[in-house]
Design a protein around this nucleic acid. Structure first.
Lengths: 229, 229
DNA sequence: ACCACCATTCGACGCGGATCGAAGCATTCG
DNA sequence: CGAATGCTTCGATCCGCGTCGAATGGTGGT
């Protein structure tokens, strides 16, 4: 099979542990400097620079110079989805880290997946929306129900405006820790933003952990009641 | 970011050219023997055996012994989707093969993507279905419309029966040659099967090319008329 | 029972690439 | 203008792993 695009180039880019760690760090959604990524990956700045150049040339990250800093971010949502798919397959293959870190439980509970909510609370939110008929899950492909449009508007999100964008409104994203779907897409991003705006939760600096306050968690569970609530 | 599953292991598996070629060959959907995969990848049988053992241990392929042959197949649909995502990113990054082979045009026109139709005719089919309101494309997430259920039943496919399965009914799959969506999932598989059954097209041995006969192509274009038809 | 064929294991070779030290450039601040 | 900081380039080193030759195990055919 010498036809088609060269898959192995892209895969080999993510195949190096240092580069994979950088990409995972960028899954937080915001751009990071080359130095930060070097520390994140546990390599020297020179090595990191070499890696980042390759990732940029491969179209996986986009560089942006700002003064004497070089910021790098994921090239797009497709790259983030690819990373999440890889994580799902890796988790399924039992390739979990041998030594789960101390923040692992918090990460499983609620984390950010590029720009939307993932982890236990992420799938619980989607479960609640589907259970109440606000989002339709037709065998894995998500769509907004007519009732859902009104609900989200009252929640402070305008689905019509989001749907006008070029980005898919809602998209099923396989959660590597829960092995079930959570919601991505423009709507998923807007919902996480609302959670931040209302002060229910905040990002822990330097991690992908989304930390809910006690009243924030209560409000979340009331807003998205489910079988577990 | 030392948390979460080890992404790099899985990516590194596909990162080797020989292994990537084997995986691409398996994207044809049917299981192949170790020897066939060795020829496909252009390596010796010993090397192929080593690669296949690693792929199997990584959960990307599943081995099956039959007599003195060892058959290997993709481990599941998720693996196939991951491969297609990689191909899409690779094509976007301009990582197309330097020397497009002689069968490349045929492959771009119509090929099999794991078990459903891809290529120019694949996206044309989805375009036609969406244009006639039989399938709804809500910003990238596909779902069957009420009218579509009746249509497919008259076409010889039972959507209700398919929906009872565990597999998603229809799923948008980014086409690497067209850079647009075609339809996968259980419905996509059933439609391709129908195309085979009606004698409109057949698989070329040893390739992913779906070759339409002249009358078959005419029937296809009549069944799925679009803006181009 | 013997041979043919296919797949796998073992061992050795060699290449590619990840890594870091040192130097070079650009930018910002005093 | 000089010093400090952050990123990148160059050169050298070294480890990992892909590769194949030879040998072993297992199955099917004669």
């Amino acid at each position: 099979m010498k036809l088609g695009p060269d898959i192995s180039r892209v895969a080999a880019l993510i195949g190096d542990p240092a580069r994979a760690n950088m990409m995972s760090a960028l899954m937080g959604g915001c751009a990071l400097t080359a130095g930060e990524l070097a520390r994140e990956a546990g390599v020297s700045p020179q090595t990191a620079s070499s890696h980042l150049a390759k990732l940029a040339q491969g179209g996986l990250v986009t560089p942006r110079r700002q003064g004497r800093h070089a910021y790098y971010a994921l090239a797009g949502e497709e790259v983030a989805e690819l990373m999440e798919s890889l994580a799902g397959l890796a988790a399924g293959a039992g390739a979990l880290r041998t030594r789960p870190g101390p923040r692992e439980p918090a990460l499983r509970a609620a984390r950010v997946c590029y720009d939307h909510l993932a982890g236990g609370l992420g799938v619980a939110m989607l479960d609640s929306l589907v259970g109440r008929g606000l989002v339709e899950d037709r065998a894995g492909s998500l769509s907004l129900s007519p009732e859902g449009a009104g609900y989200f508007r009252s929640f402070g999100v305008d689905p019509e405006a989001l749907a006008r964008g070029r980005r898919p409104l809602c998209r099923a994203c396989l959660d590597w820790s829960e092995r079930r779907n959570h919601m991505g897409g423009a709507l998923g991003k807007a919902l996480l933003q609302t959670i931040y705006d209302r002060g229910w939760a905040r990002r822990l600096d330097g991690t992908r952990v989304v930390a809910f306050s006690a009243p924030g968690l209560a409000a979340f569970q009331q807003a998205f009641p489910g079988s577990a609530g």
